[in-house]
């Protein structure tokens, strides 16, 4: 059972830790705790006309949590708040048995669906991202022309 969770794709994402660190001057940030295990994710974003121009995260968490944060680091550039929310909702849907979201890297987390106690490990960085964008207020609400991803 653990093999499917700790497959190479996931451990590679966790090791890569794309986006790990802090931003010099973030426009918005959010920290979320998982009260069940004490894990904590801080997500910082810099915005340009409503889209993510830069992003950094600090994760105190398990392999699944670190891997999920790294996938965000890889793909979040140029995302609007609505798009981040849509990815978050789609990922939760996939963990509930639905189809994977549009980011192909997230399909690696499909086996987590069978482990309900681990869903929040994957969701924590995404929820933190959405919260950071919400906290940005109007700056993240209206998106300008799509930036190159």
């Amino acid at each position: 059972m653990s093999d499917e969770l700790y497959q190479k794709a996931i451990t590679a994402h966790a090791k890569a830790a794309v986006g790990a660190g802090r931003l010099d001057r973030a426009d918005s940030a959010a920290t979320i705790d998982n009260p069940l295990c004490g894990d904590r994710v801080t997500m910082e974003v810099k915005l340009d006309r409503g889209r993510i121009a830069a992003l950094a995260h600090e994760v105190r968490g398990c392999v699944l949590c670190r891997a999920a944060a790294s996938v965000i680091g890889r793909h979040a550039q140029g995302l609007t708040r609505a798009e981040a929310q849509a990815i978050d909702t789609a990922l939760r849907g996939m963990l509930g048995g639905g189809d994977p979201p549009s980011w192909p890297d997230l399909a690696a987390f499909r086996p987590v669906a069978r482990h309900k106690s681990r869903h929040e490990c994957v969701m924590l960085p995404f929820d933190a991202l959405v919260k950071a964008l919400e906290a940005a207020g109007p700056a993240a609400a209206g998106a300008g022309p799509a930036a190159k991803r």
Binding site: L5, C37, G61, L64, R118
Partner: peptide
């Protein structure tokens, strides 16, 4: 190694 990952293994 995170305790959740250890417990999962």
């Amino acid at each position: 190694a995170h305790p959740h990952d250890v417990a999962q293994v």
